[in-house]
Computed example of a mutant assay.
Amino acid sequence: MSFVISDTQKFVTTIEVVPPAGNDPAALLDKLAAISDLDFDGFSVATNPVAKPRMSAMVFCHLLHQKTGKPAILHLTVRDHNLLGLQAELWGAKALGIDTLIAVTGDPSAGRQKDGATAVNDVNVYQLITLANESGLTTGAVLDFRPERNGLKNEVKRLEKKVAAGSRFIVTQPVYDEPTAKTLADACAHLPVPKLMGILPLLSFRHATFLHDKVDGIAVPDALRREMETSADPVRTGTIQAKHMLEIAKLYFSGACVMPPFERFEILKEIL
């Protein structure tokens, strides 16, 4: 399940997927098989986003490859496993032919403690990157540029440590305008690894407002929120805006990770 991301090859496009909540992947696999002939290079599979339980991302990567023939990048968090569990996951992924991974800290699970969920954090994300490389996987990292608190300078320092630990590519949080895209590209230009820009299509004014106000690491410009509010067809407006951001990503980045929300994969036909 080879997945090569480099500055020397063509622009790379991945599609981020959240595994199903439950033990039956059939419906989601059918949806993804239906769009597998579109112009993208592979999937990127999240693990328990917003600290809510989902099917094993590693298992879903494997099933997705079997169903579509396209490779999948596995997300792995330090939140969910102790050191023994992380090593087991890494070796298991390699045995299944999953050779590319994104190492992440994971969304905080403090709000889930009523369900008994706690964060493990035996190791930090830098140690996970090193461990993944030693296990034979190509490992990526996330740039969360913290626009809500002007945190880019500090986050670039963290990114430098991730690259020093062995990250071989970078994926950003979603970007919604060209000035931000250029700022991020310039801030990371000194790092000698490919960078993929995150693109999260908007579906409604409410969706745009929620992302801007409630989700750390995402800033939706005022003008775009107003456009979504007044649009007669906000889904189409968000789709066209995402398509525009994909063209901007081609100006400044080595690739893009498109993140269709709420399994709205049908909009990818227009975006791609």
Score class of each variant (00 low, 15 high):
65 H>I: 06
81 H>G: 00
32 L>T: 05
203 L>I: 14
159 L>Q: 01
163 V>L: 03
22 G>P: 11
163 V>H: 08
29 L>D: 02
184 L>H: 06
180 T>V: 14
98 I>Q: 05
116 G>W: 04
177 D>Y: 03
18 V>T: 15
4 V>E: 15
25 P>I: 14
243 K>A: 15
28 L>N: 08
92 G>H: 10
268 L>F: 07
91 W>F: 13
132 A>L: 10
128 L>E: 08
44 S>F: 02
1 M>H: 00
51 A>N: 10
133 N>S: 07
203 L>R: 15
48 N>E: 13
151 G>F: 02
95 A>I: 06
264 R>A: 12
97 G>N: 05
83 L>K: 01
155 E>G: 05
218 I>K: 04
269 K>C: 00
126 Y>W: 09
140 G>Y: 13
103 A>K: 00
54 R>V: 07
42 G>E: 00
250 K>I: 07
204 S>Q: 08
227 E>H: 12
194 P>F: 06
261 P>D: 10
89 E>H: 15
36 S>G: 02
106 G>R: 10
121 N>R: 15
221 P>E: 09
70 K>T: 04
160 E>R: 04
133 N>C: 00
142 V>I: 15
216 D>G: 04
233 D>L: 07
155 E>F: 08
41 D>W: 11
115 D>S: 13
92 G>S: 10
89 E>I: 01
135 S>G: 01
133 N>R: 01
236 R>W: 08
20 P>F: 00
105 T>A: 15
167 S>L: 07
94 K>H: 11
252 Y>C: 04
222 D>P: 01
102 I>C: 09
133 N>V: 00
241 Q>F: 13
84 L>G: 02
178 E>P: 07
63 L>S: 08
82 N>Q: 06
107 D>A: 13
211 L>Q: 05
47 T>K: 14
249 A>Y: 09
220 V>M: 00
254 S>I: 07
142 V>M: 14
230 T>G: 13
63 L>H: 06
185 A>Y: 03
107 D>K: 14
199 I>Q: 04
125 V>K: 03
142 V>G: 08
44 S>A: 12
75 H>C: 10
70 K>Y: 01
189 A>S: 15
120 V>K: 06
88 A>H: 14
161 K>W: 06
101 L>E: 04
153 K>M: 09
249 A>M: 05
258 V>Q: 05
72 A>Q: 05
1 M>V: 10
83 L>Y: 08
183 T>R: 15
224 L>S: 02
246 L>I: 08
87 Q>E: 03
67 K>V: 06
23 N>Y: 11
17 V>C: 02
28 L>P: 10
4 V>Y: 06
110 A>H: 13
141 A>P: 02
31 K>S: 15
161 K>Y: 07
99 D>L: 14
19 P>Y: 07
208 A>D: 09
268 L>C: 11
74 L>W: 12
96 L>R: 14
260 P>A: 12
147 P>I: 13
210 F>G: 00
162 K>P: 05
4 V>L: 12
111 G>F: 04
254 S>V: 06
237 T>P: 04
132 A>P: 03
188 C>R: 08
17 V>R: 04
